[in-house]
Design a protein around this nucleic acid. Structure first.
Lengths: 116, 116
DNA sequence: AGACAAAATATAGACTGTCTAGGACACGCG
DNA sequence: CGCGTGTCCTAGACAGTCTATATTTTGTCT
């Protein structure tokens, strides 16, 4: 059962939320499930992490929100990307790729032949 | 100039240090430079992050340390992996791969065709 | 109908780890 | 002899996730 390292989630949660919303508006609870589903259960987001993250991103203008109805019929706060959010998604996405690439290089120890 | 997202480093710094030390003992200052070099400058670790991380890992028994001499001739604290550290490297490495894989799947949105 | 589980939002407080911003010391070189 | 730089060290600010708990509404089971 996932939720492995809090410190790994930190730094990627925003990216994950933005990416999930790229496919269309969704409410908070569903966003969490979608992350879990899309990642084939490799990732899990606790509610106590998700909601504060959504407020933060909303406050920063990356998300828009309105009250609506979930597919289950219950009331829910529906989030969608703003223009700023879309641009943010692009930059977070690029930052992640660079970072992951950097880690990968260290793990493979490709460089280093001792020039100088 | 790197050092892009503190929150990305968090969760991988331990892994990076362990991995660099896998190639052999090294002192703190050199570990930081090695991470930067191996990653082709994609990654950068501040001293204020590195030293506390080394103490933490030492305290947890992942690293062994002794006073020695850097290649420059100055005194330096040389770190090396313990048995626990090697095992830790393996598990951190696996956790990273799983996590990165999970993020990748979300970014590609491969699953989900809307069955139900 | 009534009870209970599940969906969905919400929040407080603890905890942990990185950053900025310094300071200290030793060595080598001009 | 003084200065730069390699090297170590630390305090405090800050941000974000976790655990835990509460609340409301809907659907389901007997």
């Amino acid at each position: 059962m996932p939720a492995p390292k809090p410190d790994l989630l930190r730094g990627t949660l925003d990216l994950l939320v933005l990416e999930v919303l790229r496919a269309g508006p969704l409410h908070g609870y569903a966003i969490g499930q979608q992350i879990q589903r899309l990642s084939d259960d490799l990732l899990r987001v606790e509610q106590g992490s998700l909601y504060p993250a959504l407020y933060r991103m909303h406050r920063r203008g990356w998300l828009r929100s309105r009250w609506g109805t979930a597919s289950s019929g219950r009331r829910a706060r529906i989030y969608s990307l703003t223009g700023v959010g879309k641009r943010r998604l692009a930059s977070e996405s690029a930052a992640w790729r660079d970072y992951a690439e950097g880690v990968q290089r260290v793990l493979e120890q490709l460089s280093e032949h001792g020039d100088s």
